[in-house]
């Protein structure tokens, strides 16, 4: 009833866990039945290890949180050696989030991962707001096109491009990803934001700014999913403040073929399982035979 396909990946349900909120899955093995998930997207990896940003890295806000982790990770070699063996055994589609400082790095990462059978897809994190560079790839349609094109050439895996909401027109970026051969787009990554401690006059984040996530961004994320899904032909994976099945269904009605649960994993680690059951119950209640029938129903 809930089966869907994204690129070459067949998912038993549309509920994925978002990159950076679920570690490398092992962290959640006692809290979630991993086998029930639609797909797992791992914490972004880079070519070389990254120490990440200075503390403090997180800050609670009204109905959400800011984070400025800065893509801390041990690099692809460590990932393949230390994390892949466990991920390979889970038995659900594994999608690896990657980020590079330039096109070459994206290319090398994608090429290396292409050789690993247990990996179903790659999510291109061109939208992390917490790394220091000229601007985000996802803020420029030409750069987006070039990165996706380079990755597309080197991999036969499903390619998902993760978009930033910190743009004037997210649809043109989504179209660039589609034109370059991306199998799907996922949106949205976090909104660039900040919070200040009025006593010290300092930012509450070591990196000064960070990415805002949680229910506070949901209405904007939903609008973006609605807009993008109407203007491209590849599937849209929706995310941004999904805390329960109702939120997930909103994204699906707006036009998302699948959804990702992110920040909610921090607050209720078992929430993805509940969301899967909640969507099933909704479909039954409304006598909907196929999940596909409700995608984009809200016009």
């Amino acid at each position: 009833m809930m089966k869907i396909k994204i690129g070459k990946i067949e998912l038993k349900n549309p509920v994925m866990v978002a990159s950076g909120t679920f570690g490398y899955a092992k962290e959640f093995e006692k809290l979630v039945n991993l086998k029930h998930l639609g797909a797992i997207i791992t914490k972004t990896i880079t070519l070389n290890p990254r120490q990440g940003n200075p503390m403090p890295r997180i800050c609670e806000t009204a109905s959400g949180m800011l984070n400025a982790i800065g893509l801390q990770n041990e690099g692809i070699d460590d990932f393949i050696k230390e994390k892949m063996p466990y991920l390979s055994k889970i038995g659900v589609p594994i999608i690896i989030s990657i980020s590079g400082n330039n096109i070459d790095e994206f290319f090398i990462l994608a090429r290396r991962l292409n050789k690993i059978k247990a990996i179903s897809g790659i999510e291109l994190n061109i939208s992390c707001p917490n790394i220091k560079c000229r601007g985000l790839v996802a803020q420029d349609k030409k750069e987006t096109y070039e990165v996706v094109k380079a990755v597309r050439k080197t991999t036969s895996k499903t390619v998902i491009t993760k978009l930033s909401p910190n743009v004037t027109d997210i649809t043109e970026i989504a179209k660039a990803a589609e034109d370059a051969g991306s199998d799907a787009v996922s949106l949205v990554n976090t909104f660039l934001g900040m919070a200040i401690d009025v006593e010290t006059g300092k930012s509450k984040l070591g990196n000064i700014t960070g990415g805002l996530s949680g229910p506070c961004i949901k209405p904007i994320a939903l609008r973006m999913v609605h807009e993008v899904s109407r203007n491209i032909d590849i599937p849209v994976i929706g995310m941004g403040g999904i805390m329960n099945a109702g939120d997930a269904i909103e994204f699906i009605l707006a036009g998302a073929t699948a959804i990702q649960v992110g920040t909610a994993n921090f607050i209720e680690p078992g929430v993805s399982g509940k969301i899967i059951k909640g969507i099933e119950a909704y479909l039954k209640k409304h006598k909907i035979k196929k999940f596909q029938d409700i995608i984009g129903r809200t016009t």
């Binding site: 570690g23 959640f28 403090p56 997180i58 800050c59 984070n67 982790i69 801390q72 994993n265 921090f266």
Partner: peptide, 22 residues
């Protein structure tokens, strides 16, 4: 004592600098 989001090692929000890295 550190501020934390997840508490399970997923968010990497509570990094502690040590002699062998974060």
């Amino acid at each position: 004592e550190e501020k934390m989001a997840c508490g399970t090692g997923a968010c990497l929000g509570c990094a502690v600098p040590t002699k062998s890295g974060n």
